[in-house]
Design a protein around this nucleic acid. Structure first.
Length: 329
DNA sequence: AAAATCAGCAACCGCAGTGAA
DNA sequence: TTTCACTGCGGTTGCTGATTT
């Protein structure tokens, strides 16, 4: 049995909304609200529209405080950061940009921001020296990973499913003329406690294994024996003990040096030490001839604070737990 | 000036998650 | 426990205006 259609498609209007339709819908919702039922709303309003269409029109265009027009550099930074961390979860990204809709951000990414990064990538490839894979660096990164989990405290015993995307761990690579040493870092609360110039991808399984082991050693309950249920920290405790808003700090940092600098700084950075197998293979293959535009290619373009994972994920733990697969107790 | 191509974006489609019955 | 209506989401389509040939 097929799914029942949400409306009678033959008797609903489609296509662009007229000003009259807009004002009808807006006036009704402002006066009565949606009533929690979009399907019956068009009938109440007197519109020959599908409920889903009404919902979309309201959310993307008519509701108050919608921001249209150019995106700021800061918004660009946030979108890039979050896309790198969580992928195309536009609703989550939109939640971090007041007044912007997921549809807006999705369109903006697909039509402009992606191209901007691709252009940078092309320039980077044109100037990148060829580098081999460095196993010592790999060991360093593994140690780095272990240290990360060793220094994290599981303050929120949320049961957690790993999101499907691979999670990027990246050490911060300040542009060369902006490097910050440890003491200065603590003083100005940037918390850039890593000085390595490596970026590391950890697969979902690697992260699960590490966190599960770590949590087991901390006597935290680990629900089940697979990665689908692990306990994670929902807080960010930098080494100086100050609980910080990592994303905000990152944005402050990028704003201080400019997105272009951050992107361009990778031109002088060897990205070939990525642990993820696919990236390893990519690195070992010829880099001079490929014209790939996949996100694997784009991703190394953006540098991140000590850990994107630790700075970004708390937002979702607090604001959008269901997207992280938090299980109901 | 006209046709072709491109870019931006609003809207649609179908799937998955959720919760009520 | 199962079914199903509803909602929300991400991917895709198609329209429109701008730009290029």
């Amino acid at each position: 049995m097929g799914r029942a259609p949400c409306c009678d498609k033959a008797n609903v209007k489609r296509g662009p909304w007229s000003p009259e339709e807009d004002s009808k819908l807006k006036a009704y919702i402002e006066q009565h609200g949606t009533g929690g039922n979009w399907i019956t709303l068009p009938q109440k309003v007197g519109l020959k529209r599908c409920g889903k269409s009404c919902r979309l029109r309201w959310l993307n265009y008519l509701r108050p405080n919608i921001k249209h027009g150019e995106f700021t550099d800061e918004e660009d930074n946030i979108i890039c950061s979050l896309y790198m961390s969580i992928g195309s979860r536009w609703s989550i990204i939109a939640a971090q940009l007041p007044g912007r809709t997921d549809n807006d951000i999705k369109n903006y990414w697909n039509t402009r921001l992606k191209k901007k990064l691709l252009l940078c990538n092309k320039q980077r490839k044109d100037h990148r020296p060829r580098n081999g894979y460095n196993h010592n660096k790999l060991e360093m990164m593994k140690e780095h990973e272990n240290n990360f989990f060793a220094t994290h405290q599981a303050i929120n015993n949320a049961y957690y499913s790993w999101p499907p995307q691979q999670i990027l761990f990246s050490t911060l690579i300040p542009p060369q003329n902006h490097r910050v040493d440890m003491a200065e870092s603590s003083a100005n609360s940037h918390n850039f406690q890593y000085s390595s110039t490596d970026q590391v991808y950890f697969s979902q399984d690697q992260l699960c294994e590490s966190s599960t082991n770590q949590l087991a050693s901390m006597n935290h309950p680990v629900n089940g024996d697979t990665c689908n249920s692990s306990v994670i920290s929902s807080g960010y405790y930098p080494s100086n003990g100050v609980i910080s808003n990592g994303l905000q700090e990152y944005n402050n940092y990028i704003n201080s040096v400019g997105l272009d600098d951050v992107l361009n700084s990778t031109s002088t950075t060897d990205h070939s030490q990525q642990v993820d197998k696919s990236v390893f293979e990519m690195v070992n293959s010829s880099t001079s001839q490929d014209q790939s535009t996949s996100w694997e290619e784009l991703s190394p373009l953006v540098n991140y604070p000590p850990s994107v994972f630790e700075t970004v994920s708390p937002y979702y733990v607090f604001e959008e737990p269901r997207y992280l697969g938090l299980l109901k107790q």
